[in-house]
Design a protein around this nucleic acid. Structure first.
Lengths: 351, 351
DNA sequence: GTGAAAGCGCTAACAC
DNA sequence: GTGTTAGCGCTTTCAC
């Protein structure tokens, strides 16, 4: 058992040991110098410098795996989404970008965690020895709440209902709907219908419906509230055409449905906005270049991404050292929506 | 230094040690029983069973961090993408889903690695102690090639030019373009123009242009080749309107440009396909419900995602144990595109 | 202020 | 066939 009988290491990365030797200090000291901020460690300024200089000279980079094991941290959060969720397009794309930026600032990275296969197996990734926390994109299967309870992992859901036992960052749908309805009412519309795809069960379908109904009632139009649910845009348009007393404006649940409506209305010779106005939600490609460009409520995607990241980092820091069971009270953060008026809405025709 | 003087562990996950004790075996044996497949280890069937039973009984899950450190693997690959404007936005979404599924089958997860900030800092994540390999979405900054050379990390690029020193999975643009051009030529078009956004420098802009030109020449229309490049769709349409001898068909580089063209043509009273046919690439939302729905070449997104995953896993397995410098010869895989005919293309008007 | 020593929980040679 | 031993490379008490 001599001290260093092994052959020279095959040109791998320098380790803390190497730096320590080069600096004439101990690994522990180098570790402190590199990781602790000056004010929170007791090292001489001179030693700190010496350690840092040696590290830089050798091009030292701490080994990720070793650091994780020793410090019991992962420097990684889960980015959890339903498999079908378009994470690189639509609103989510903008959320992801902002989220990522913000997490990076805190030195966290994101592991992609699509919810596929057997829910029982999700816990193979969503666990404290793999992740420090989770950001979750709506829609969110119920099993996740349970996982949160079991693992005690800090979690923040994006775009979810506020009554979950999990912290949530979401758009203020009530506000957005009000902006949109005010716009239509001001244009002079009185017969306004809200429509959504029947298959869509996201909580915001109902929220927007509620906002619509509230605005109608507030305008004294409670008796004209009409909430339509159809399998396809075409089905809605067919119904629309048969109506004797047609609505003058349509509020579509989202841009996907609205784009379908534009297509099917045009196919049947109904002009937008001359014959009927169409407005919707989600200010994303390609609503600015549809025919005609769509008036939409913009979800504050970037702000939501940023807020979720900050909230999660806070939760992680708070949970340090604490027992996993001591879950924080869930926070909820509603972010303001804004209205973007384009050419799909106009005053209704006289008569 | 007694053997177990410490207080009982505070109810954390059971470790290999715990399982070993419970089974009356050694940790090493448990590890073998759990990780090696029966045929590749020398354990008695009885011991294997005993080990597995004990593990199951205790609800044992290997600690991710410890496993990574000891085995020098990360079970993680990087999913690298340029932060700004995914050039094939819609397509990437489909790629990701297939990619993720395939990687999961090999027990790999993906870390999101957006290329933001200082390129020098990318190496903080793209390194062998953090990732086992990388999948990279086009467009790909040059610095990545260098990183690949330095780190020796297995890497597969998706949607990149085939002449890189990196393995590539890409659509067969030549084939796709030919399908599209054959369709237009068969409809009777002779004056066909190819148009792309001037700001777009992705290699496929040129590839599609080349395919277009080749098809024109093959049809004896070499003298009518017209490749247009404009800042916006509107600019192109303005030019178009002033031309005495207008093309009867437009091949747009991608769906984004094509949707812009539909909008601007409609705004100026040009009817598609009666006055001019429009065809493009990327069969993604919302090309099926534009006005009119677009004839497009579909990029084989799912196949590309799957192929990239398989290729990367192969490269990782091959590189096990080898020196990081012994980079494999890059592979290239071209996947077939297909044509989806919709209503934006029709025979040109007589005269 | 700094260093020594003891792990973190697993894997992989190599004895037995 | 199975157990023993020695790390993986770092962090973190705790002496000095």
């Amino acid at each position: 058992m001599e001290d260093l009988p092994r052959t020279v290491k095959p040109r791998s990365q320098p380790t803390l040991q190497d730096v320590a030797r080069a600096a004439g200090l101990s690994p522990a000291t180098i570790s402190l110098a590199l990781n602790r901020r000056p004010e929170e460690c007791t090292l001489t300024d001179a030693t700190r410098r010496r350690a840092i200089a040696a590290a830089r000279k050798l091009g030292y980079r701490p080994n990720f795996r070793a650091r994780a094991l020793a410090s019991r941290r992962n420097f990684t959060v889960g980015f959890v989404f339903a498999r079908e969720a378009p994470i690189l397009s639509g609103v989510n794309e903008h959320i992801v970008v902002a989220l990522t930026d913000a997490l990076h600032q805190h030195n966290y990275h994101q592991l992609m965690v699509p919810l596929i296969g057997d829910p029982a197996r999700w816990s193979e990734v969503i666990r404290p020895d793999r992740l420090d926390g989770c950001i979750m994109l709506s829609p969110l299967p119920e099993q996740l709440e349970q996982l949160q309870a079991e693992t005690g992992l800090p979690m923040v859901a994006i775009n979810e209902r506020a009554d979950l036992p999990i912290s949530v960052v979401a758009p203020d749908e009530q506000m957005g709907t009000k902006l949109l309805m005010d716009h239509l009412l001001q244009l002079g519309h009185r017969d306004i219908v809200y429509v959504h795809a029947a298959a869509n069960v996201h909580y915001s379908v109902q929220q927007r419906a509620d906002g619509y109904a509230a605005a109608m009632r507030a305008a004294g139009l409670g008796d004209r509230i009409r909430i339509a649910s159809h399998a396809t845009a075409a089905e809605f348009v067919d119904r629309y055409l048969q109506e004797p007393h047609k609505p003058t404006a349509i509020v579509a649940y989202d841009h996907i449905l609205a784009i379908g409506l534009l297509h099917d209305l045009a196919a049947r010779g109904v002009r937008v906005p001359q014959d009927v106005s169409v407005a919707t939600f989600n200010d994303v490609f390609p609503v600015a270049m549809t025919i005609p460009p769509l008036t939409t409520v913009a979800v504050p995607a970037a702000a939501m991404g940023r807020a979720a990241a900050e909230l999660l980092v806070q939760l992680i820091n708070k949970s340090k050292g604490k027992a996993p069971s001591s879950v924080e009270h869930p926070h909820t953060q509603l972010l303001p929506e804004t209205l973007v008026v384009r050419r799909s809405t106009a005053a209704p025709r006289r008569g």
